[in-house]
Amino acid sequence: MEHCDADVLALVALGEPAPAPDADHLAHCPLCSEELESLTRVVGAARTATDEDLPAAPPDRVWAAIAGELRLQDSGAGTPPPPARPTGPVGSDGAAAPALPDPAPVRPGPVNGSAARSPEHLRNGAPPAGPGGAVPNGVTPHGVMPHGAAPLGVRRRRRMPRWALAACAALLGAVAGVGATLAATGGETPGTQVTAKASLQPVAVARADGTAQLDRVPAGSRSLEVSVKGLPATSGYFEVWLMDPSHRKLIAIGTLGPDGSARLTVPDNVDLHEYSVVDVSVQPYNGSPAHSGDSVVRGPLSS
């Protein structure tokens, strides 16, 4: 027979049985076996990885030691030149994102919510403990989160390790916190009040991040101030969404301005207990009102 289909090799690498003709072929074809072996290596690495394998910044003293050993002057190492924006589409290295012909997101739909509730809970979980935002001392004009420091959960359920449980607990706590705060500020509160915030972590663009802050003004209307940096270049626009934690129910609340920020009104009747996640997507100008499936940053609101 012909060589195994790439989809079949992916299937087998993930542990599903190969259809009989493919299994026979695999037993005899060094080319397909080699291909399968390299995919199996990837699957094995992914399945054994924990959050501790996510790149985390070294302590500040490491940079201090490097700068000292290389005799870098603070002034000499000074301000990086004004950087150009990445020119590719979504995806910081432009590798896979542009190749996605069908970025159909998991849309709100008739699927029952509990089934896929777990998949992305942890990605919005608590940041790992430890030296998170260590950046070179004295030589960095802006404290951008280091690449890869995003506190995204790598593993879930079955083999859920302790940190994952902690992340779940933190998320539940955060959601409960929103509820408590909203309830507490529901009455006549004098003056604008910050009732919840979200740290927006990268989804598709590694170096994008941002913040969202929910304000309530005396009249009772709520507004969400969103600011994102490291946005990819796009011929489209950036839409801000409120999502439920399973990412199945979405409400579009507005678009970001050219500076990557916007103050958007949250409709009065939106229940932020339910729509507790802020998401920013890059949208093509194709007339479709649906989420493109290409999220740039996302984070849960918490008080």
Binding site: A46, D53, L54, S92, L100, P103, G148, A206, S295
Partner: peptide
């Protein structure tokens, strides 16, 4: 792999 996984686009 853990690092790259976090940069993959959704879905």
């Amino acid at each position: 792999v853990a690092d790259e996984l976090t940069t993959l686009p959704e879905p």
